[in-house]
């Protein structure tokens, strides 16, 4: 882990201030923080809480890979990425992703990219607990093609493709391409 990336799987309450403090940097004028929280409904059912199951070793390795990949796409950013393991009540924080950068566009785009990749690639599972007392493990993204996808991401030339997928344009946040920047 380098000093511009922090990843963890935690059984302790996730702390937004810790994320902010880690990515804060005097050369960075923007910090974007994504906080995932447990909501009280899902597909018409009343949810009482969620249990998060995590393969800790593989998850932290996957987080690290996503962070390194993201730093290749948006150079110079700092990243904090932590996911909770265990049971949470409604409103509990399940995940925090914080990104800082010189300008706001990079931090917005990189933060979005990281959380979307986490959802597709990290070995984390949710078991929802419903008002009636039942529980259900949610379906998700299969990891079957992950090894191939990782190799493809590292190929030269994928940088633009990945950034486009994340919704980026000029990436500099300075309005050079005519975006809101």
């Amino acid at each position: 882990m380098n000093d511009s990336i922090y990843v963890s799987v935690s059984t302790e309450v996730l702390n937004i201030q810790n994320a902010y403090d880690f990515v804060s940097d005097p050369t960075h004028g923007a910090v974007d923080v994504f906080v995932g929280a447990v909501r009280n409904h899902h597909e018409g059912q009343s949810v009482q809480g969620i249990t998060y199951d995590v393969h800790e070793g593989l998850a932290e390795k996957t987080f690290q890979e996503i962070c390194l990949e993201t730093q290749n796409l948006w150079e110079g950013i700092k990243i904090y990425m932590s996911h909770y393991k265990g049971q949470l009540d409604i409103g509990g924080i399940s995940v925090i992703v914080a990104v800082s950068s010189a300008h706001r566009a990079e931090s917005f785009e990189a933060c979005r990219y990281i959380i979307e990749e986490l959802k597709k690639r990290a070995p984390v599972w949710k078991q929802e607990h419903y008002e009636q007392g039942s529980s259900e493990w949610l379906s998700g993204h299969s990891l079957q093609s992950q090894a191939t996808q990782i190799s493809e991401r590292l190929l030269e030339g994928d940088k633009v493709t990945a950034k486009e997928r994340a919704g980026g344009c000029c990436g500099g946040g300075q309005g050079g391409c005519g975006c809101a920047g």
Binding site: H55, L58, K119, A122, K126
Partner: peptide
């Protein structure tokens, strides 16, 4: 503990593995 295995990978000794269903973190 470190990698997802390919279907064609071969195991030749006692091994600890994990089976990972489709993921849905966040």
């Amino acid at each position: 503990d470190r990698n997802i295995l390919r279907d064609s990978d071969i195991l030749s000794s006692d091994t600890e593995l994990s089976i990972l269903p489709p993921v849905c973190g966040g």
